[in-house]
């Protein structure tokens, strides 16, 4: 973009690229001018993404530490709290996320093999699964629980609480799943953006799929975090 010289000229002197949406951009993708070659650039992007993911993991470890501390402080309240969760919904959501992780991986594979149609289909399924996850989370968990007064901290007003510190449990629950849900939402945005780039801009193909891979890794981490959250919150009493 930075090299566009005239108002209607691409660097090559032809008409501005924006006017040719059908162009298969991935074929002409050039590495950034400060890279020696495309491999270096791809490797760099991958290291970058892994580093970013490690920050994500550390972010959630903070949450897990908080969980562990309160489990130690108030074992009964936490156990009682987790009884309120329905492992069936949690389980369904686990399955939904696992499917989405698989279709995400497939989408990358499709792009690498230049099966653009299937890539689109797989991305769409991923997106739908993500939405499904949130829908289940909200309609069957957040909204009814909130309505019953099972809320965090001072907002807690559940009349039949059996333990003193159940509100702490709900704080942990909402904070952990809330931060996770936020990541799902961000992930949906990223996948939608991939879809746009893949379908309309034809930006990805066998020789260029860095962002696909990056978002894919991100999505797996989001999935992985849920794989930890699910047993900790729903199953361990």
């Amino acid at each position: 973009m930075a090299t566009i010289t005239g108002p209607n000229q691409s660097p090559a002197g032809g008409p501005l690229e924006l006017e040719r949406p059908a162009l298969e951009r991935w074929k002409t993708h050039k590495h950034g001018h400060h890279w020696r070659n495309a491999e270096d650039e791809f490797d760099a992007a991958k290291i970058g993404i892994w580093l970013f993911l490690s920050t994500e993991i550390l972010l959630f470890s903070g949450m897990f530490c908080a969980y562990a501390v309160f489990r130690m402080l108030y074992p009964e309240s936490i156990a009682a709290g987790s009884q309120y969760l329905d492992p069936r919904w949690g389980g369904t959501n686990t399955v939904v996320l696992l499917i989405s992780s698989w279709t995400m991986a497939m989408a990358i594979r499709d792009v690498q093999l230049n099966r653009q149609f299937w890539a689109t289909v797989n991305l769409l399924i991923t997106l739908v699964c993500a939405a499904g996850f949130l829908a289940i989370k909200f309609t069957f968990e957040y909204i009814p629980k909130w309505g019953e007064g099972k809320r965090p901290g001072t907002l807690f007003s559940y009349p039949w609480a059996t333990h003193d510190h159940e509100h702490v449990w709900w704080s942990i629950y909402y904070a952990a799943t809330g931060i996770h849900a936020f990541h799902v939402i961000v992930g949906m945005g990223l996948i939608a953006w991939l879809l746009y780039r893949q379908r309309i801009r034809k930006a990805y193909g066998p020789t260029h799929y860095t962002m696909m891979e990056g978002v894919g890794l991100y999505w797996h981490i989001v999935d992985l975090v849920w794989i930890f959250l699910f047993p900790l919150l729903y199953l361990v009493h």
């Binding site: 309160f70 901290g153 001072t154 907002l155």
Partner: peptide, 18 residues
């Protein structure tokens, strides 16, 4: 932030936090 806005009580001893 959550603590200040929603008083979730994770760090607030008054609510059993630490």
């Amino acid at each position: 932030l959550f603590e200040r806005v929603f008083s979730i009580g994770i760090f607030d001893p008054g609510l059993g936090g630490d």
